[in-house]
Simulated assay, not measured.
Amino acid sequence: VRETLIESSDKSTTRCAICKIRSYSFCRCLHDDQLKIFSGISTEKEFKDKETVFLQQEDSKHLYNITKGNIKIYKLLSDGRIQIIGFLYPGDFFGSYKKGKYNYSAEAIGDVRLCVFKQELLDNYLEKNMNLAKELLHMTSHELTLAQDRIGVLGKMNANERVAKFILNISEQRARIGWQNNPVSLPMIRQDIADYLGLTLETVSREITRFKTSNLIKVMNAKQIFIVDKEKL
């Protein structure tokens, strides 16, 4: 893990003020003068592909906001299997905990940069900034939405529908943060997609091939899919 600060040519410009994902992050409600203080309670850390950010049941000392890259969040089940909860994008806030322990594990997908907050410092700041506290509540509810979406996907859809829904959801997530959403970039490995959807790797590959044969998608490479017919997919 490498801790880093983004320097600006203008010394009076804070790291938060020049943050590229500020417009869709929970700190978007802060004014420039508030950002100067807010920058002082956070640092940035970089993680390499597959590097662990934190593990389930570790002491929860920090909270995180993604400024670059993607994060996989998952739970380790009692039988040793991994249950992937979801995939997070720039602007997403994560690190929920219960009784001082993280509720899940988090791992980097590709190169990742995170804005890191000490829980105690952030809690103190939120007590004085109710607008920010409301934004944070909205962002943390996204984690619950991910879990609910997963239950819906696994409980009511067949394999074909699960894979299609996953591709469309990723496209919508990218559109939400202003990224190109077609072609759809899939930074996660196929096995992680299969685990998330409750399918085998072979089934995921078969369904993607079926979509391709039906001219619903074009597989541009291992990490990119172009949606040809969104309505039929």
Rank of each mutant, 00 (worst) to 15 (best):
E161V: 09
R162H: 11
R162S: 04
R162W: 01
R162K: 15
V163H: 02
K165S: 11
F166H: 07
I167Y: 06
I167K: 01
L168W: 12
L168S: 14
N169M: 11
I170C: 10
I170L: 09
Q173V: 02
Q173H: 13
Q173N: 13
R174Q: 13
A175V: 00
A175K: 15
A175T: 08
R176V: 03
R176F: 04
I177S: 04
I177N: 02
G178N: 04
W179R: 13
W179C: 07
Q180W: 09
Q180D: 11
N182E: 02
N182L: 03
N182Q: 11
P183Q: 12
P183K: 09
V184D: 00
V184T: 05
V184I: 06
S185F: 10
M188W: 05
M188L: 12
M188G: 02
M188V: 12
I189H: 10
R190K: 14
R190T: 10
Q191N: 13
D192I: 08
I193F: 05
A194W: 07
A194G: 10
D195K: 08
D195M: 11
D195T: 14
D195S: 08
Y196C: 09
Y196D: 05
G198T: 06
G198R: 10
L199I: 10
L199A: 11
T200G: 15
L201T: 14
L201Q: 14
E202A: 15
E202G: 14
T203H: 08
V204P: 01
V204W: 03
S205K: 15
S205D: 14
R206P: 00
R206A: 15
E207S: 05
E207P: 08
I208L: 15
T209F: 11
R210L: 11
R210Q: 13
R210S: 13
R210G: 05
F211C: 09
F211W: 07
F211T: 06
